[in-house]
Design a protein around this nucleic acid. Structure first.
Lengths: 334, 334
DNA sequence: GTGAAAGCGCTAACAG
DNA sequence: CTGTTAGCGCTTTCAC
């Protein structure tokens, strides 16, 4: 592990000069440049980011914290982040919070100790403890696909209320009147409550009287979808379609329906939410809300780096979603 | 951003003492301990890993490099890695190589500059350039779900040959005689060739004459599965089942079959390979080879840390796979 | 028990 | 154009 000191000695120059050519700072003769380059190649020099970051008080690194979920919807977000980071000369390091986002505070602390210049937190629910830590330590942070109510942490997401309104409304538009809602966590102010509200509003606007029994709460996952259908069946609740709060949840609903020989979409329509790559990979393909994940990565990273580099204040953004029609929905006549 | 210097001053002790209590090294009075603790809390001290790693020449961090794929089979691997890292007091930082594993060398270099103590590379094909870099820079590395032929880089994986033999043999055991193989990249020595070989050997052992037209090569992904089925249909190739080289590929095959109104498994059996969480989430559920991903994470990280801490030589391991029966296969009579 | 001091590898003035 | 020097925040002898 050669250091600039070794190179300086071998090349017969000072370490300052070595540093200059290594960082392409200019201010040296062509001869010196060539010599230093040659020597550092010969000695197999690799720079030490730790030392550099330490003195620079800048790591040129942004940290990403993401949850562990089966449907890797975070991947396109990461791709987006990487794309702009790369371009703007930043590194990105990623950390998983585990399935239950249990270790989120711990991961935030680690990122802070690594002295990342900024943090992107994907789709995790932050509690008081975490936001307090972020604030107290003055960590530049932007949230993706999540937000914290009553805080001014900037976020990039879609409007859950509108998205759920849109897809519910679509079901209504193709003739459905008895519409289930599967999977929402009603304790969750960020995703659960607004999605429920959007769903409900669409019913009301269509003059449909909302029934409590149409709601099967859950935690957005596969199991929530399965349970929902099981309960509808058990209680013989009469619905012609189910709005699920995630693609994964929709897969669960489909799975339970299949286990009961219910044919989709002929006997039951089902919708997802997320528009992960999965939605188009399953058969039948999912009708779902497509979130612009890649774009979310782009935006969040751009905002963050603008803040880091130029001190710009990050602005929250609501991105456009789109309705992706698949084969799990069918019009209802009569 | 308080430093130990600040704490030292505020507590009226030396920085050496602060360092001692912060690291629980002992050798101080209870009074000093309490005082330093109190002051550092008050000043909201957070340690600077960069500085610490720099002087220690040890980052207590292991780097993980993984590809970006739609079916997040890497997640359970990461979970396994995190579990043992956590326990053994190591941090882990992750980096994605992008879909085509295009940036793998770049990522390896970055990890090296970050001075990680060791590296776990998941499921990526390493070329001469990368292995040379790893060797030259003496980076402790272990591979997961991949390997490099003719090198002594240690790896943790399953035996692709045996696994493919097993699943092909299963199809034979339930009566199939005309068996397609979809998705293998035959240029790929690590996964493509052995899987093909295992498939072929199972046929031979059963006295089935292998037909060239049964093979539809590809690149392990969804599209490869779709194309395979399209080709079988176009050329009217008579098979009763298809062995796919990945779950994702199987999804593609199913998708194309569905588009042609072929009923699975009644008219066509299909198998996957990987046993991702997806396999059980789709309907019908996939018959597939289940790789012990979590265990792979555990083993690789254990080996690596044993090497880092105790200089143990890492040993390659072939882990057991299992056959996971789903609903995409059906026995063939007559 | 505690402190002084010497760096880890590097950058960034400041001189020349 | 190039070198000297003073640190970045921390750990770690070695004295006291």
């Amino acid at each position: 592990m050669a250091t600039i000191k070794d190179i300086a000695k071998a090349a017969g120059v000072s370490i300052a000069t070595v540093s200059r050519v290594i960082n392409d700072l200019g201010g040296y003769s062509e001869v010196t440049y060539q010599k230093v380059k040659a020597v550092s190649k010969e000695l197999n020099y690799t720079k030490n980011s730790l030392a550099r970051s330490l003195v620079r008080k800048r790591s040129q690194t942004i940290g990403v914290i993401m949850p562990t979920v089966p449907t890797s919807f975070s991947n396109p977000i990461i791709d987006g982040i990487e794309e702009v980071a790369e371009q703007l000369n930043f590194d990105v390091i990623i950390s998983h919070t585990g399935s239950a986002s249990k270790y989120i505070l711990q991961k935030i602390i680690r990122m802070n100790e690594f002295k990342v210049d900024g943090l992107i937190i994907i789709s995790s629910q932050l509690s008081q403890v975490e936001t307090a830590y972020l604030e107290k330590n003055d960590i530049k942070t932007i949230l993706v696909s999540t937000m914290v109510p009553d805080s001014d942490l900037p976020y990039i997401k879609v409007d859950d209320y509108s998205a759920m309104y849109a897809i519910t409304n679509y079901l209504i538009s193709i003739g459905h009147r008895r519409i289930g809602l599967a999977g929402p966590n009603l304790q969750d102010k960020v995703a659960g409550q607004p999605r429920f509200a959007g769903y409900k509003k669409a019913l009301i606007d269509a003059g449909i009287k909302f029934q409590d029994e149409w709601i099967q709460t859950g935690v957005f996952d596969f199991t929530s979808g399965r349970k929902a259908v099981r309960n509808y069946l058990k209680d013989a609740i009469d619905i012609s379609c189910i709005c699920c709060v995630s693609d994964e949840c929709a897969l669960g609903a489909i799975s339970e329906a299949a286990a009961n020989n219910i044919i989709i979409p002929k006997e039951l329509s089902i919708t997802g939410y997320d528009g992960t790559s999965l939605a188009k990979m399953v058969s039948p393909t999912l009708t779902t809300i497509k979130q612009p994940f890649f774009q979310m990565g782009i935006q969040s990273c751009s905002e963050l780096i603008a803040c880091i580099n130029d001190g710009k204040v990050m602005k929250s953004q609501l991105l456009n979603f789109s309705l992706e029609l698949g084969q799990t929905t069918k019009e209802k006549r009569g």
